[in-house]
Amino acid sequence: MNSKGLEIFCKAWLPRKGVRLKGIVCFCHGYGDTCTFFFEGIAKIIAASGYGVYSIDHPGFGLSEGLHGYIPSFDELVDNFIERFQVIKERSEASGVPHFLLGQSMGGAVAIKVHLKRPSDWDGIILVAPMCKIAENVKPPPAVLKALGFLSNVLPKAKLFPETDLADLAFRDPRKKKMAVYNVIAYSDRMRLRTGMELLKATDDIERQIEMVSSPLLVLHGAADKVTDPAVSKFLYENASSKDKTLKLYPEGYHCILEGEPDERISIVFDDIVSWLDSRCIH
C-alpha cells in the first residue's frame, strides 16, 4: 500500500546465490512504462553484475493500482517512491552496502526530485535520458498549452493532450520497436491533462533547483534523442554541484538506449553503468 491506500506493485532481482552483493540499485521507470517487460532484461543484467535491483510501478502505471496513466501530483509520486524505498533500504541485504538511484526518462525527474528531498540518502544517481525538460518538438504550442492548463483544472483526467507516436522516436532498432506493442500493461493512450501539466511543472521545478543536485552523478543520453533533449543533460551536467559527475552521449542513440538500440550498442551502455557502479563500491 502507499499513503493513498493504493496497492503498489514491487519487484526485486538479486544476484545468484553465493555472489557477494556490491550494492542496491533502486529504479524509477519512465512515463507510461512499468518495471516489468523490457525492464526484466535490464534488471537481470545489473543483478548478474552483483547488485540488488528493486523497482516499483508508480501509482497508475503497470501493475499498480490507480487510474491508468494519471499523475494527480508529481510531488506525491516522488513521496510515494521515497516511502516505498525507505522500507526496502531497511532490509537486511541492503544494510552496509551503497544505495543508488537509477532513473529513466520521467523516472530521471523522479530520481532528481527524490535526491533533492533526501540528498544524503543515496550514494549516487544514474540518469538515462532524464526528463529535465520536454523537447520542443514534443511540447504543444504555447497557446495550446495555456488552454490545456486551464482545462486540466476542470477535466484533470481527460485524455486531451495532443498525441505523439513516441515509439518511432524512442526505438532505433526496428525489431525492438515491434516488441514494444506486446507490452500490453504500458500506457500508450493520449496523455491525461493533469498528468501532462504535472510533468511540465516537474521539469520547471528541476530547472530552478539544478545547482542543488550534489550526488555522484552519471548521465547517459542518446545523441539523437527527440523525446528528451540531450542538450538538457549537458545543462544538468554543467550546472549540478556534484563534484563527481560524468556525462556520456551515444552517437545516433534514440531515447530508449537501454532497450531500443541494436544489441551491441546496448551492451556498451550497460558496461558503462556497471563500471561506474563498481568504481563507487567498496571491494
Rank of each mutant, 00 (worst) to 15 (best):
residue 11 K to A: 05
residue 271 D to Y: 08
residue 44 K to V: 00
residue 62 G to N: 11
residue 210 I to N: 07
residue 245 K to Y: 01
residue 46 I to T: 06
residue 81 F to D: 07
residue 233 S to P: 05
residue 146 K to I: 06
residue 205 D to Q: 06
residue 24 I to A: 05
residue 83 E to Q: 14
residue 74 F to H: 08
residue 186 A to G: 13
residue 217 L to W: 02
residue 136 E to G: 12
residue 61 F to E: 09
residue 177 K to P: 11
residue 14 L to S: 14
residue 138 V to P: 10
residue 263 D to W: 09
residue 125 I to K: 06
residue 12 A to F: 09
residue 213 V to G: 06
residue 47 A to N: 04
residue 161 F to M: 12
residue 8 I to W: 08
residue 70 Y to F: 02
residue 161 F to R: 02
residue 133 K to S: 15
residue 206 I to M: 15
residue 89 K to N: 12
residue 247 L to R: 09
residue 122 W to Y: 15
residue 68 H to A: 15
residue 106 M to Y: 14
residue 71 I to R: 04
residue 56 I to E: 06
residue 273 I to N: 05
residue 46 I to S: 03
residue 214 S to F: 02
residue 210 I to G: 10
residue 103 G to S: 03
residue 154 V to G: 02
residue 60 G to S: 08
residue 199 L to E: 03
residue 83 E to N: 15
residue 128 V to D: 04
residue 224 A to Q: 13
residue 236 L to F: 12
residue 132 C to E: 12
residue 117 K to Y: 06
residue 231 A to Q: 14
residue 80 N to L: 05
residue 34 T to P: 00
residue 278 D to K: 14
residue 41 G to D: 07
residue 271 D to I: 11
residue 41 G to S: 11
residue 178 K to Y: 00
residue 244 D to M: 13
residue 233 S to V: 01
residue 143 A to Q: 14
residue 112 I to C: 12
residue 203 T to K: 04
residue 64 S to D: 05
residue 62 G to E: 10
residue 102 L to Y: 15
